[in-house]
Amino acid sequence: MKMLSLAAATAALAVLATPAFAQTKSVAVTAIVEHPALDAARDGVRDALKDAGFREGENLQFSYQSAQGNPATAAQIARQLVGDRPDVIVPISTPSAQAVVAATRDIPVVFTAVTDPLGAQLVTDMEKPGGNVTGLSDMSPLAEHLALIKEITPDAKRIGIPYNPGEPNSVTVVNMMKEMAQEQGLEIVEATATRSADVQAAARSLVGRADVMYIPLDNTIVSALEGVVSVADQNDIPVYAADTASVDRGAFAAVGFNYYDVGRQTGEVVARILKGENAGDIPVRVAAGTDLVVNPAAAEAQGVKLPEAVVSRATKVIGQ
Rank of each mutant, 00 (worst) to 15 (best):
A202R: 14
R204M: 10
G208T: 08
G208Y: 05
D211K: 02
D211F: 02
V212G: 00
M213V: 05
I215F: 09
D218N: 11
N219P: 08
N219R: 06
N219Y: 07
V222I: 15
A224D: 05
E226Y: 03
G227C: 03
S230L: 07
S230D: 13
V231T: 09
A232C: 04
D233S: 03
D236Y: 10
D236G: 00
P238W: 00
A241F: 00
T244A: 11
S246M: 15
V247N: 04
R249I: 05
A251T: 02
V255K: 10
G256C: 10
G256Y: 06
N258E: 13
N258G: 05
V262P: 04
V262D: 08
G263Y: 10
R264E: 03
Q265H: 10
E268G: 07
V270K: 11
V270T: 12
A271E: 12
I273F: 14
G276N: 12
G276Q: 13
E277S: 15
N278Q: 14
I282V: 11
P283W: 12
P283R: 11
V284E: 05
V286W: 03
A287L: 08
D291H: 09
P296S: 02
A299S: 11
A299W: 01
E300I: 00
E300V: 02
G303S: 12
G303C: 08
V304E: 00
V304W: 00
K305F: 04
L306V: 04
P307G: 07
A309F: 04
V310Q: 07
V310Y: 08
S312C: 04
R313M: 13
R313D: 08
A314M: 10
A314I: 14
